[in-house]
């Protein structure tokens, strides 16, 4: 069984294998499809229309499936690789090991936010941004400028304590665990981290920055943690609901995977520890 680990505990070889697999997918032309898919859902998911990947109950199972598919793609390059997660409640500064040259590289430089260090630096020629909102073809970050502080452990605990998974109207205005984790309501966890990293992570094409996968892996882990703490609660809605993916409805774009299929992550992988 594959084990997903905290990035802070990866060995030098595990970091190298993960980075090399990312670069290989990019080289093979398979990486950018994930960026396109993500943005396609970002622009089509609306609060009063069909919504699947974001601002809706299926935000969590959709991204679980999205990460699984990507992880399997990485494993086709190197079977030893699993997605690491970034616990941003612990590694919360621009000098954390996550941003070192042997993993994701550092902050963007002042002036144009261009990442100039590490494996994904534009000048390295290995990480040209092709699916992008504007003319710039290099990775950009602006750590801690859009918002100063990453969410704290206490804030995460407050969201894990929410009893109900989700609630009508099943969008960005909903009460419930999912929307507080996604961040449109409450202390704002997921959305805030996108804003904290800044640059391409603040856009609909956020998977252009490999930190997307480590961030969403932690979001996925927090969903698993919520499930562990609330065994009597489950995915909602269970009944067919207009524009929303209910428990047994297949999710686009795969059309063969329902939220119910994604509830038990241990069918596919485990995490190295509880939150």
């Amino acid at each position: 069984m594959a084990v997903r680990k905290n990035q802070a505990t990866l060995t030098a070889k595990e970091k190298r294998d993960f980075v090399d697999a990312l670069l290989q997918l990019k080289r093979l032309g398979r990486y950018d499809a994930y960026v396109s898919t993500h943005n396609r859902f970002i622009v089509s998911d609306t609060d009063n229309g069909e919504r699947t990947g974001h601002r809706s109950p299926s935000f969590l199972p959709w991204h679980r499936k999205f990460l699984l598919q990507f992880e399997q793609d990485l494993q086709s390059v190197n079977p030893a690789v699993t997605l690491p997660y970034w616990d941003w409640t612990a590694d919360r500064t621009a000098t954390a090991g996550l941003w070192a040259d042997d993993l994701l590289g550092g902050n963007g430089r002042s002036g144009d936010n261009r990442v100039t260090t590490g494996p994904f630096a534009g000048a390295g020629g290995q990480w040209t941004i092709t699916v992008r909102p504007d003319s710039r073809d290099y990775l950009r970050r602006s750590l801690g400028t859009g918002v100063a502080q990453l969410p704290t452990r206490a804030e995460v605990e407050s969201v894990l304590a929410v009893q109900t998974y989700d609630a009508a109207p099943w969008n960005s205005s909903s009460a419930g665990f999912r929307n507080q984790l996604e961040g449109w309501r409450g202390v704002n966890l997921h959305n805030r981290v996108h804003v904290w990293v800044g640059g391409l992570m603040g856009t609909g094409m956020s998977p252009n920055d490999p930190v997307f996968w480590l961030h969403h892996c932690f979001i996925d882990k927090l969903w698993a943690e919520w499930q562990r703490r609330h065994p009597q609660q489950g995915y909602l809605p269970t009944a067919a609901t207009t524009n929303v993916v209910s428990l047994n409805t297949a999710m686009k774009p795969w059309n063969d995977t329902t939220p119910a299929d994604m509830l038990d992550h241990t069918r596919y992988y485990t995490y190295d520890s509880a939150f």
């Binding site: 970002i42 504007d134 996108h194 804003v195 603040g202 609909g204």
Partner: peptide, 8 residues
């Protein structure tokens, strides 16, 4: 917007 997607 598409460039400030997570920040209303």
């Amino acid at each position: 917007s598409v460039v400030n997607h997570y920040q209303p």
